[in-house]
């Protein structure tokens, strides 16, 4: 706010100089777009409805959105549904009558909010979907191409496990069976693994709601049955801490190749360095947040009918391995400036 006033004051002063003192030798010219932009952003509001807070993904996104809002002088608010889809639906319902300018929604799945999001757009609210999109497209979507994550992970495992002396046995630790995120990723795995004769998928098990304890016990059971297990495909880094713990206890850390994915937070680099996993696909939360901020700005400036343009931005993926981990910068909340 202060920044904005200051900027406006400076702009006014400069402008009067420009008119009054055109005789001055070195001319300073104000960017004609900026005043209008800043003025138009004032008192606009953006609301973020995440599935959860308190994990690196959402905290990272939210922090960057909040920073931009603070800088540009619009309102930003988080309404946390706290893993409760019904609560999220309630929130969006009441937001439709509150009418913020932009609604950023992290969908829990493909369907739950679809109809509400359409109603929100019909009511004149720009809806940006984050991380998971419903089957109804709205003004914008920012998130990873999840199938591609799966394919990237599976390729890494294939590379490792089809070599000389490898059993080719692979364990897949999926997320909740009903989660599209996990289902898309499984699809990516299948795209790669199904065509490969040397790979044998010994077990596909759900870790429940991404429970690391469950990942651990499944891994232990499968290791009992298949001591020559070669690779594990995990859906999410936090879950695979359990996977790694099981391997460490069995003394198999160096025998089994673990590939996982996540937002690229500090855990990702730590996991590579401590040999919890050997391959990591990051969907780069700060990058996603930047995309999101751009779409928010675009939406705030959009004068057309809501929903007349629909933009999908898939996040470029980054692979972390022991070889490149030192060149990668794993972000932390502190590092998001």
């Amino acid at each position: 706010m202060k920044l904005f006033t200051k900027a406006a004051m400076t702009a006014v002063t400069l402008l009067s100089f420009a008119i009054g003192g055109s005789a001055v030798a070195q001319q300073s010219i104000n960017d004609p777009a900026r005043d209008a932009l800043y003025a138009s952003l004032k008192d606009r509001s953006v609301v973020f409805v995440p599935v959860f807070m308190g994990l690196d993904l959402t905290e990272g996104w939210s922090k960057m959105m909040a920073r931009q809002a603070e800088k540009l002088g619009y309102k930003y608010e988080v309404r946390n549904s706290n893993f409760n889809t019904a609560a999220g639906a309630q929130t969006i319902t009441s937001l439709i009558s509150e009418k913020p300018d932009v609604l950023v929604v992290q969908n829990p799945d493909v369907q739950s909010y679809a109809r509400l999001l359409k109603r929100a757009e019909d009511a004149g609210i720009h809806v940006l979907q984050l991380n998971m999109k419903t089957n109804i497209l709205t003004t914008g979507f920012v998130g990873a191409d999840v199938v591609e994550i799966g394919e990237t992970q599976a390729n890494a495992v294939v590379n490792h496990c089809t070599g000389e002396g490898k059993s080719g046995k692979v364990l897949i630790l999926a997320g909740p069976p009903t989660s599209p995120f996990s289902a898309y990723m499984l699809h990516g795995y299948e795209n790669v693994l199904n065509g490969n004769d040397k790979i044998q998928v010994v077990s596909v098990q759900s870790t429940g709601a991404y429970e690391s304890a469950k990942a651990k016990s499944i891994t232990q059971v499968v290791l009992q049955q298949h001591p020559d297990l070669c690779g594990i495909l995990g859906v999410w880094d936090n879950t695979d801490i359990g996977t790694a713990a099981a391997l460490a206890e069995a003394g198999k850390t160096n025998d089994v190749f673990v590939s996982t994915s996540g937002g690229g937070g500090e855990l990702s680099c730590k996991g590579i360095r401590e040999n919890l996993w050997q391959h990591y696909v990051s969907y780069d939360v700060p990058g996603q947040a930047r995309d999101l901020n751009d779409l928010i700005l675009a939406a705030l400036q959009d004068k057309n009918e809501v929903g007349s343009t629909k933009t999908i931005l898939y996040t470029p993926l980054i692979e972390f391995t022991a070889d490149n981990v030192d060149q990668q910068s794993c972000w932390t909340l502190e590092s998001i400036k």
């Binding site: 409760n84 889809t85 019904a86 829990p108 799945d109 369907q111 739950s112 909010y113 109809r115 509400l116």
Partner: peptide, 14 residues
Amino acid sequence: ARLASPGADTGKGL
């Protein structure tokens, strides 16, 4: 009728 959502965690915690 309101949400038309076959969401996976429908009714969770109800």
